[in-house]
Amino acid sequence: MVALPANKLEIRGLDVSYGQKRVLRDVDLDVPANQIFGIIGPANSGKTSFLRALNRMDEMTSGMQVSGQVLLDGADVRSWRNVYALRARIGVVFPLPVGLPMTIRQNVTFAPRMRGQKNKARLDELVERCLRRAALWEEVKDRLDSLGSMLSGGQQQRLTIARALSQEPDILLLDEFSIAVDPVTTMRIEDVLKELKQEMTIVLVTNLVQQARRLADRTAFFLNGECVEVGKTESLFHGDHRDPRTVDYVEGRFG
């Protein structure tokens, strides 16, 4: 067995711009495997653009240009000829839950069906497994064939997590998942993430500083397109040699 590098993702000199506007400049950071990597920062700091660059979502966003390197298991994601296979290895959860206009079951099995899985027993098993891991199974097991859009906001967000898990991704990207979710559900999802990191690497963009503190093993602080600081989460909150901007942000003086 070939030993994988300890870092799941290595970002080198990443730049993102929309036309003339540069939203992310020269970001270097490593995301270790089987950890939760938090990214904090105020609005417009480039957090979402960073996520989009990781699974090459930029290629469908008109005007978004990315340069620099994103190494996944040591290989540049841009060298993958099959971008669709790359994206299948990277699950994404968006800020607002996007229930596709279909039933709960169809939402979870969307990607496997798309890849040609037709075996009903295996799909059923997959639905239960993904919904259980997303802590939604008990609430929906009796109505799998009703529309996903009939669920509450928090349930829908867990449904999108279940859907993201359906392809057994190596990496799960979450973009401010708790914006439309009540606090109780947020805590349940946070527990889910702590479980999931044993099997995958999680990159969590959040505007809640305390959420990063609760969950993340390492955290990066983005501000105005710059990665100001990156390190062990505790050192971002208590370290002695922190950037003054980091201190101001984590202590709630702006943002």
Partner: peptide, 9 residues
């Protein structure tokens, strides 16, 4: 976008 992120062509 959701379908795209799942690797749909």
């Amino acid at each position: 976008e959701a379908a795209e992120a799942m690797g749909a062509t």
